[in-house]
Design a protein around this nucleic acid. Sequence first.
DNA 1: GGAATTGTTTTGAGTTACTCAAAACAAAAT
DNA 2: ATTTTGTTTTGAGTAACTCAAAACAATTCC
Lengths: 159, 159
Amino acid sequence: MTTPNLSGGAGLHPAAADAGLLAGGIRSAGLKVTAPRLAVLRALTDRPHATADALFGAVRADLPGTSLQAVYGVLASFTTAGLVRKIEPAGSPALFERRVGDNHHHIVCTGCGVVHDVDCAVGHAPCLTPADALGFDVRAAEVIYWGLCAQCQAETALP
Amino acid sequence: MTTPNLSGGAGLHPAAADAGLLAGGIRSAGLKVTAPRLAVLRALTDRPHATADALFGAVRADLPGTSLQAVYGVLASFTTAGLVRKIEPAGSPALFERRVGDNHHHIVCTGCGVVHDVDCAVGHAPCLTPADALGFDVRAAEVIYWGLCAQCQAETALP
DNA sequence: GGAATTGTTTTGAGTTACTCAAAACAAAAT
DNA sequence: ATTTTGTTTTGAGTAACTCAAAACAATTCC
């Protein structure tokens, strides 16, 4: 075998099986399966809220020669295809996550910048309806909570 | 009188009275009253959700020679002082608004980018409490609704 | 009212996080 | 195997800020 196995056939070891799953996801989104795309998706699996730059760093570790622009391109196509979600918290470069399709929100630490997922406040779509939509056809509600994470609280409480 | 009236004394005509009010606000925020600051605050009064660049355009109309960096500086000091609020919707440069101190949210048109204020969804602080704060000390909840404004709806519905 | 003090603005440079386009290349369809 | 189509590389360019030093102006103090 002289070419890498990108085709998602029966896996022979864990990484191959993983590649198969990733490849299937990419293919069923209507996109061609390529090595940079697999690498980005794999990197994003380990880093649930990553910047393009962080992913670039991770990708080039297992696929040297990949360009930053390729990572941007991959992320753009994934985002358009609904395979990943892009979030842009104030003051931060864009973050990407694989968790899509549900309406979850985010909590960002103002101290260290760490981001976690949080489920919608009230059980059912609560924040999805503004008091007065002003004639808008509302399609999405994005909620970002800001606060101090447990660790940053502990650190600021020191003598 | 050879120097402009920045001191906020009894106004002689509407613009002066306005300057007095603006100056008072700036002064009580603990900031020095300067011509660029008055100009930015006045421009922001007419443009409830403006970018630094838009404000720069407006400011230089009545105070030529003001630099863009001065506008950034003014906005940074106002934001720190709590005199204005900075919002950063995804894909847009930062917007500034004078409405502060209440917990209102925003609705952004995905077509034309227009931004309006909206009050909190449910009567009482609804979105302020995530289902699970994950140990965070939550200080703020920011909600952005995305949708099509009435005008953009009408335009997309054309034959 | 004038000098000292402190904070602000100008001027000029630099950075981050992207975006765009053309040519080389690789995956999928035939 | 070849063609087609979509992707990645390479290289350039941009928007929106941020930083620092020197000039300047608003308060404070006498």
